[in-house]
Design a binder for these strands. Structure first.
Lengths: 217, 217, 217, 217
DNA sequence: AATGAATGAGTGTTCATTCAT
DNA sequence: TATGAATGAACACTCATTCAT
């Protein structure tokens, strides 16, 4: 994935890069179609058509349909990770966790699209858990990154010492998933403004030590 | 023709309970298959086979495939509502909200199955939002019911007066969705024991007034 | 068929008449549907629905689908014969042949409908000639009746002696079929006014001895 | 991708003649089956089987079933037009109209087959007039071509000046349709010899000025 | 590398027909 | 007599996959 950000200086003929880019392009298009119309519409023909290439090319770059979906999922995950990295660049502590949460929670259209894709991929994975669609990669490490943010916040006294970073991080993850879910169920109630307010409130709760308070075992 | 002049004394028409049961049975089987293997495996043939009836019977009782899915969703929703009603029977206040939450959050296999089904139906609905799979019905009123529980809890001083029932109810909904999501992403971390502990903690947070605290606008 | 015109004086309970009427009603509805939407839409369910009876009743009165079509064809034929009889009642000679032609040629909506039905039934018969759909009955005897008209016209000197009644009768039949065909091919050209003019012209041609002139063998 | 920068010197795309031939072959087979057994037997399976290809190939070359039928109709029409052109090659005046009529009227097995196909396609079109089976194309221009023949015949004094070409042309069209119709109704009466005699007679009538005589308005 | 022809399994759907009530 | 549940064959159509060019 990092290859995508490497400028192709001197090896314009390298087939590896060429293929990789082509794969990425196809994965991106597949993600678009899935996000718009669901997985059942993401047929090889539809993908090829939107890519402007022939049907055979698509399967020339992938082993089979499952391979396309697997690579598409990886591409979606990589895109989110990269987005998260950009949003939290040069941020620390509470500010970082705030930015991270704004990136994760479905506020922007891009984040909403990401959640739609997650639902579709879960649906695919839940159905047949053996087809190597590893959903765990999607948010790998985000709990740790939230923890690190919150530890910095603790150090800087941005949040009370009573807050347990891990528990608070988990609450943030719960909130993100819960808001996404409720937004799909009741879009009118969970309009953009309300979703934004929820983020503000949780940050306030964090500062007040109401989130992730240590419990006695 | 002559029958038209005979007053229908004895209700010659079938009472339709048989049909209704048959529809319910098919919907239940469809829900099972969807829960186990995803919507794409819930073909009419597969449903009929598991029901032990012929393919034509299924579409004899339903208009078409969409009708089957719609009725299946309704059946799933009705089953959850009924389950929730049973679990909160003769309970009030914090106890009721606790029971309600235990019913909603994926603790039992049945609740996990419900969440799987929700994901699958969301995936179907997100793809083509116009096909009359009304997802809003699934949890209709649960927010209100949580609110009512919490108002009773306030009255009984089970929770501090600083708690806003609506905000607390929403936090409980967020928690449920968030836990379900994280359970799918990282089943090892979100094992049964941890999920149970989350419920205990949120109840503790409620009692301590850490959930749904009023915010200044 | 003549039974239909017999007033049911004293045997209102006679099941034969009852069934016969029910059969006729079903045949009429089948003819309507075929005329409107073609044979493939005339399913047993559609017929039963429009009749306001249940699907099973239809096949209770007929052996099978082919039987329905056969009886429908007979009903259509009988209706045309009766219509022709009514139109030529108390007419003789050229007037009778004129009336008969106006009845046969697609001038009125009813006559157009008849031609549509003929096309559909031909299509069915041509496909499988063995299924006992006897098309010959539809216009049985009309050539003879035209001949009789023209012989009377000859006697009354309405047409020249050079006209051979049989040949002229055949020309009238050709004209009817030909106009029907062309009307389907080019409805704009063969509008109602033009079709009426064609009838007038052929009658004029008949009077002038230009139709059915004797040929040397 | 790199291909995009290569000037396409040598026309890398297939010339499509193969496809066209394959389409034509399928259309021909479809026409055969329809002519033999009616439209309802012309299933994609049946067509593919007789073509010696697999079911999927047929729909690889056509959009859907309607497309097959549409192309089949076009193929039938084109075949007739070509046949008519060949039969009237280097003929003028009465000889041309005679040849044209012999081509149109169901004399040869091929012409009979054409009329069968017309009946079947009409039946399909009458049922649902909106499905883009344009029947008008089948005999497009034949009236004009008959007119031109007869104008030449007038010039050459083959037919009397009293004959109106347009009216005579229409009478020839009527005759063709009428004979086809009667042949289907009463094949024994309209045997091959009689049909041939009808053609001879109409030509005689034409020469005698008995066909298409001008009428006073 | 790229095209698209070919295949065949699988889908929803329609329908005539049979049969128990 | 009348109903409609049940059956299974047949249909058009979609699609991933293979393969020759």
């Amino acid at each position: 994935m990092r290859d995508a950000f490497v400028f192709p200086v001197s090896m314009p003929r390298m087939p590896r890069t060429y293929e990789r880019n082509r794969q990425d392009r196809i994965a991106q298009v597949a993600a678009e179609i899935i996000g718009e119309s669901g997985p059942e519409r993401a047929t090889i023909r539809a993908i090829a058509e939107r890519c402007g290439i022939s049907k055979g090319v698509v399967e020339h770059h992938f082993a089979d349909k499952k391979d396309i979906l697997r690579k598409t999922l990886q591409w979606v995950n990589a895109r989110f990770i990269e987005q998260e990295r950009r949003c939290t660049l040069r941020k620390r502590g509470l500010a970082a966790s705030h930015a991270r949460l704004r990136c994760l929670i479905p506020l922007t259209p891009a984040a909403v699209q990401d959640w739609k894709l997650r639902v579709h991929f879960w649906s695919m994975t839940l159905g047949n858990p053996d087809d190597h669609l590893d959903m765990s990669g999607g948010l790998a490490g985000i709990r740790d990154r939230f923890c690190e943010d919150l530890r910095q916040a603790l150090e800087c006294r941005e949040i009370p010492a009573s807050v347990a970073p891990l528990q608070a991080a988990n609450m943030l993850l719960h909130l993100a998933g819960g808001v996404a879910w409720n937004m799909f169920v009741d879009p009118a109630y969970y309009n953009r403004r309300y979703r934004a307010r929820i983020v503000d409130r949780i940050m306030d709760d964090l500062r007040q030590g109401r989130v992730g308070a240590r419990h006695r075992q």
